[in-house]
Computed example of a mutant assay.
Amino acid sequence: MNKIIVYENANFQGLSREFTSSVLNLVKEDFNDCISSLKVIGNPWVVYSDRDFRGSQFVYEEGEYPRVEFNDQISSLEVVTEDLMYPQITLYEHDNYRGRTLVLTTETNLLYGSFHDLASSHKVQRGAWVLYEHINRAGAQMVARASRDVPNYGWFNDRVSHVRPLKPGKPIIKSEILWDKKEEHVKSVTIDSICGLNKGEHEQSFSTELFKEYTASVTDSFSFSNATQITWGTSFSVDVGVMKGEQNFSFSNTFTVEKGSSNTRTERKSIQITLPTKIAPHTKLTVNVLRKEVDVKVPVKLTIQTGSNSSVEFGEYRCQSGNSITAEFKEEKI
């Protein structure tokens, strides 16, 4: 969701309005010339000092702004809907796309090159850009967008000193575990063996404690595709609720994943095994303690919504469970 929340006063105080689409005239919304702070969620928004997207303009990317440019002077709002992932702009030395050109795909301080204070027109091939009057993102600014070529900057001719592409808002990621494609491996492992002998004619007490404790664990993890588009610091939840309640998977039903951090969690607990109290006459009693180890791997479909664009990739969820511990008894006559 691309959204802007505008406030009557600074620091998000006073009356507020929330918009999810562009607003040509804030007079019709009873909120004209009164905005002093705002919050942006998703793609950037451009604010204008006049209605119909005219007058001075200023752009806000995703974030919170306790104070704004054009305080109490904003009359229209426009959401940026272009694909912002792979930006490209061509600057022209003269108006009407004439003279030398400069093609940019990243933020550039023109003072460091030969195109400082020379541009008079542009064409945007991809994305949306901000052109600044001064270096370091200072001074008046012009928003340049794909399919909106500008043949003449007017008073802005020969004044562009800094150029940067606008960034999309944080991606929204939805995960879906594809349980029908899971791989599951189960094996039993002996983790302890206790033996007792009774060579006599009468029943004897078992020569060990009646209870023994063992450590069990469940570990789940998530791994990304090597070609993932998801950037570091991006987090989302994986719902593993389908497995909740089964003996071998006792985790809560939500696993939070963050790109760039460890995506593994382990739960450990003690399990108590009750041992027999007596051994029959002329009997060898063997108690084998078994751990049932289950290893499940399952693909996860990730739908990534960035601004108005959507893409799909796959990761892998894995759960290794060893919290099912049982005792197996075997008697042999001697």
Rank of each mutant, 00 (worst) to 15 (best):
V218A: 03
A146R: 15
E78A: 13
G99I: 00
A119S: 15
N288S: 13
K284D: 03
V79H: 12
G169F: 10
V242N: 10
S161T: 06
R318E: 08
E213H: 11
L285F: 02
V6H: 04
C319T: 13
S308D: 11
K181Y: 11
F156M: 02
A10T: 15
R268D: 12
V143M: 01
E133C: 12
R159H: 11
E332K: 15
E246D: 07
K182N: 07
S21I: 09
K181M: 14
E133K: 01
F211D: 01
R164Q: 12
S36D: 02
V46A: 10
R148D: 12
R291H: 02
H122G: 06
K278Y: 12
D30P: 00
L110H: 15
L290K: 14
Y317H: 12
V130Q: 05
R137K: 14
S207A: 10
N25T: 01
V186G: 13
A216G: 14
T326D: 13
F58H: 13
K3R: 15
Q272P: 09
N226V: 06
L26P: 06
N11G: 05
L275K: 10
E246S: 11
E183A: 13
V186I: 13
A146E: 13
S36P: 05
G241A: 06
Q73R: 14
T283L: 01
S270K: 14
K292W: 07
A327R: 10
E246L: 04
T254G: 02
N226T: 06
G42A: 00
Q13D: 14
D149T: 10
I41T: 15
F58R: 01
I35M: 06
L111D: 06
S188R: 09
Q272R: 15
V124H: 04
F222A: 01
V46S: 06
I304P: 04
G241P: 04
V47N: 02
S37P: 04
S221N: 08
E29Q: 09
I135V: 10
T105H: 00
E183L: 13
M1K: 08
V238P: 12
Y86N: 14
F31N: 03
V124A: 04
A140I: 09
S193L: 11
R265I: 11
V300Y: 05
Q204I: 05
M1V: 08
G169V: 05
N253V: 00
E213W: 15
E61G: 11
P168H: 03
Q141M: 15
A327Y: 12
Q305I: 07
I173D: 00
K187G: 06
F314N: 14
T286N: 08
E331F: 11
F12V: 02
H116E: 14
G154V: 00
P66S: 05
P299H: 05
Y132G: 00
S207E: 07
N248S: 01
T215G: 08
I5M: 03
V23N: 02
F58N: 04
T274E: 13
N263E: 05
F255C: 08
S308P: 08
L104G: 15
L77K: 07
G139N: 03
E176L: 11
F329A: 04
P66K: 02
E133P: 12
F255T: 00
I334M: 06
H202C: 05
T264M: 07
F31A: 03
T208K: 06
S225P: 00
E331K: 14
N323V: 08
